[in-house]
Amino acid sequence: MSSIYNENIQGNLSTSRDITAGGHLNVRGNSVFGHNVVIKGWLDAKNIKGPCKGLYASLDALKEAYPRPMPGWYALVGNTLPADVYRSDGGEWVATGEQGGEVNLYLDQLEEDVANLDDDVKDIQEFIADGVLLGSSVTFNTTANTVTLTFKMKKPDGTEAPFTVNVPIVTRQTAGMMTASDKQTLINLDATVWPVTVTMSASPDIVEVGVSTKVTLTWEIERRGAEVSDESEVTLNGEEKHSTMEEITINENSPKTLSYTLTAVYDNVTGSATKQIHVVYPTYFGSVQADWTPTETSVKSLTKLLQTSRASTQTGISTSNGKIAYCYPASFGKLISIKDGNGYEVIDSYTLWTVNVGGVNYNCYLLTTPVTSSGVTQIYK
Rank of each mutant, 00 (worst) to 15 (best):
residue 143 T to F: 12
residue 145 N to R: 06
residue 146 T to L: 01
residue 146 T to Q: 03
residue 150 T to V: 05
residue 158 G to W: 11
residue 159 T to I: 01
residue 159 T to P: 08
residue 162 P to R: 04
residue 166 N to A: 11
residue 167 V to G: 01
residue 169 I to E: 01
residue 169 I to A: 04
residue 173 Q to F: 10
residue 173 Q to G: 11
residue 175 A to P: 03
residue 176 G to N: 07
residue 178 M to A: 13
residue 180 A to Q: 01
residue 180 A to V: 10
residue 182 D to R: 05
residue 184 Q to H: 09
residue 186 L to F: 11
residue 189 L to K: 14
residue 189 L to F: 05
residue 190 D to V: 06
residue 191 A to Q: 11
residue 191 A to I: 01
residue 191 A to M: 06
residue 196 V to M: 10
residue 196 V to F: 14
residue 196 V to H: 11
residue 203 S to Q: 12
residue 205 D to V: 06
residue 207 V to W: 15
residue 207 V to M: 08
residue 218 T to F: 04
residue 220 E to W: 02
residue 221 I to R: 02
residue 224 R to M: 09
residue 224 R to V: 11
residue 229 S to Q: 03
residue 229 S to M: 02
residue 232 S to R: 08
residue 232 S to T: 11
residue 233 E to D: 06
residue 235 T to R: 06
residue 239 E to L: 10
residue 241 K to G: 03
residue 243 S to L: 09
residue 244 T to D: 10
residue 245 M to P: 03
residue 245 M to S: 12
residue 245 M to H: 11
residue 247 E to Q: 10
residue 249 T to P: 05
residue 250 I to Y: 15
residue 251 N to M: 13
residue 255 P to I: 10
residue 256 K to G: 00
residue 257 T to E: 10
residue 265 V to Y: 01
residue 266 Y to L: 01
residue 266 Y to F: 14
residue 272 S to E: 07
residue 272 S to R: 14
residue 276 Q to E: 09
residue 277 I to S: 01
residue 277 I to H: 06
